[in-house]
């Protein structure tokens, strides 16, 4: 058992550099169970890098990172009490901007592959769970289809089901609707919204300000690799303090 008082994720002074370019310049962040955190900011502000650090798609170069009170190790397997990248990724699901479905596998196999290989689930169990997840995202009839035959919105819903198949405790969404045609955004956001209502802990990088306001319990505004402003959606989106944030938001209110 882990202490429930520990935040699910705690970052202190997290830094990330690509060569000589510092993209994250010391991020302090706590994410608590059931929170939905929206990350907004101009492109190049480091928001994608931040969310990708949370499941070690990117390796932080400095700072501390703890998951449920346990220090996160960059190794795939780590000695307790540390938590390795392998276990962290099983417990923190990720949805990508470009879906990244496995094109050589059917929708059903896309979802069952992880649980079967990584968790050693039986085919029956993995498929039963996958079918349940597919009906939750409204795609039970697409189980046998291949990704190439799905619309963008359908692909992203399958990608969400694939991440949920490992029963993660946190879900990361890295601009999940940015690659979609406008008319397909709604079906994906509806799935994300339902997850939020079910109490899933989530981090969401998005340009959908209305949705961020609607679904998030907290919003952080990033600029130049740092958190420039944070607060409730009302505070950040309706009463921004800094000129930077006002300027950023004005581009979305036209």
């Amino acid at each position: 058992m882990t202490a429930t008082t520990d935040p699910v994720i705690r970052l202190e002074g997290l830094r990330k550099s690509f060569g000589s370019l510092e993209v994250l310049k010391g991020i302090d962040l706590e994410l608590h169970r059931g929170e939905v955190l929206s990350v907004i900011g101009p492109s190049g502000s480091g928001k994608s890098t931040l969310i990708r650090c949370l499941n070690l798609m990117e390796e932080p170069t400095a700072g501390t990172f703890a998951f449920q009170g346990r220090p996160v190790s960059l190794k795939f397997r780590a000695k307790a009490p540390a938590i390795g990248a392998g276990e962290l990724r099983r417990r923190v699901g990720m949805v990508f901007q470009h879906f990244n479905l496995f094109p050589h596998l059917s929708v059903l196999e896309n979802i069952t592959k992880g649980p079967r290989i990584v968790l050693g689930e039986s085919r029956e169990d993995a498929e039963a769970h996958a079918m349940q997840l597919l009906s939750e995202v409204g795609l039970a009839d697409k189980a046998a289809a291949y990704p190439a035959h799905l619309s963008g919105g359908q692909k992203q819903r399958v990608a969400i089901a694939r991440a949920l198949a490992l029963r993660p405790e946190v879900m990361l969404f890295d601009e999940p609707t940015s690659a979609l045609d406008p008319e397909l955004v709604g079906e994906v956001l509806a799935v994300v919204r339902r997850l939020a209502q079910d109490g899933m802990t989530m981090v969401l990088v998005t340009h959908e300000m209305g949705f961020a306001a609607d679904v998030a319990s907290r919003v952080i505004f990033m600029e130049n690799g740092a958190i420039a402003e944070q607060g409730s959606p009302e505070e950040i989106l309706r009463a921004p303090k800094s000129e930077r944030l006002k300027g950023f938001l004005s581009r979305f209110h036209s």
């Binding site: 990248a85 699901g93 990508f96 694939r162």
Partner: peptide, 27 residues
Amino acid sequence: VEKGQREAANAVGMTGVQAMTHIILPQ
């Protein structure tokens, strides 16, 4: 094979070898 394929495999907890044999090599 797109970089995103390896990332997606890693994101569901696969090791480098698992990602290679189940996701990258078949493609």
